[in-house]
């Protein structure tokens, strides 16, 4: 297992957002966490990557518990993610957005060396730029590298987040509702990108509303309802699970 959660529990005030969720995700696969609105999917993501400190239970990545680790430490361990509500840097250009991710493992360009702009800084920067351009090209935004990210359309901002996350060279890519608000063309392009990422050997975990997309993409599906895990397994199996059908039919979605 690449990522595991054991009895992961998350309480906000009196509200139980996640209850005893125990899950594991295999390396090299595309896995999905699904569920009706308010099922705790995004909370699950946030607890996995250090945005929230779990109330109880733990998250284990590559056999190492993540408890007490800050998001940037978790990022360094090899987890990257995107955000349902988008956390792009609107005033930075596309290439700068991606470079921030790409420069994660560059420890030599510190404050002082950068202020003096030593030759090493300039050459590192060029490398980072080339890499960033590569990821922008891959998601089809290469020709807009110098645009401010805030000027992009919504769907393009989502894709930019993926490029940015990939630039950190992760082992696990977590996508929070990547297809939300996309046109059907954009959606198909997105699926191609995700498959391509999987083919490069990167594990993908996504939270998604769009059942069609999940069923077409995912190798493994876990279903949450009111913070509890109600089913897990291959998509075909989960699809016919009576609990899952009930959870989805109980709500007009």
């Amino acid at each position: 297992m690449l990522l595991q959660t054991q009895n992961l529990t998350m309480k906000f005030g009196g509200i139980m957002a996640l209850k005893d969720v125990t899950l594991g995700f295999q390396p090299g696969q595309i896995s999905a966490v699904i569920g009706p609105n308010g099922a705790g999917k995004t909370t699950f993501f946030n607890a996995c990557c250090g945005v929230y400190a779990p109330t109880a239970g733990q998250v284990i990545f590559k056999q190492t518990p993540l408890n007490g680790k800050a998001p940037h430490q978790i990022a360094h361990m090899g987890i990257a993610r995107t955000w349902q509500n988008l956390q792009i840097f609107p005033q930075l250009t596309l290439i700068e957005n991606v470079m921030v991710g790409g420069e994660m493992r560059d420890h030599s360009s510190g404050f002082v060396t950068s202020m003096l702009r030593l030759p090493s800084v300039a050459s590192k920067e060029n490398v980072a730029k080339v890499k960033a351009k590569h990821w922008l090209d891959l998601v089809g935004l290469g020709d807009r590298a110098e645009t401010q990210a805030g000027n992009l359309a919504f769907g393009q901002q989502r894709v930019l987040e993926i490029a940015r996350a990939m630039a950190t060279s992760p082992q696990l890519l977590m996508l929070d509702e990547p297809a939300a608000g996309l046109s059907s063309n954009e959606r198909d392009a997105l699926m191609a990108v995700i498959r391509r990422i999987r083919d490069e050997g990167i594990t993908v975990l996504l939270v998604e509303h769009d059942m069609r997309l999940v069923m077409q993409l995912a190798d493994y599906v876990a279903v949450l309802n009111y913070g509890e895990l109600i089913a897990k397994g291959p998509p075909s199996e989960v699809q016919s699970n009576p609990d899952v059908i009930k959870a989805y039919l109980g709500e007009d979605e």
Partner: peptide, 13 residues
């Protein structure tokens, strides 16, 4: 612009 966004890209904010 986004503290959490930067954190998740490995920036020790």
């Amino acid at each position: 612009e986004s503290e959490i966004g930067a954190e998740m890209l490995g920036v020790d904010t």
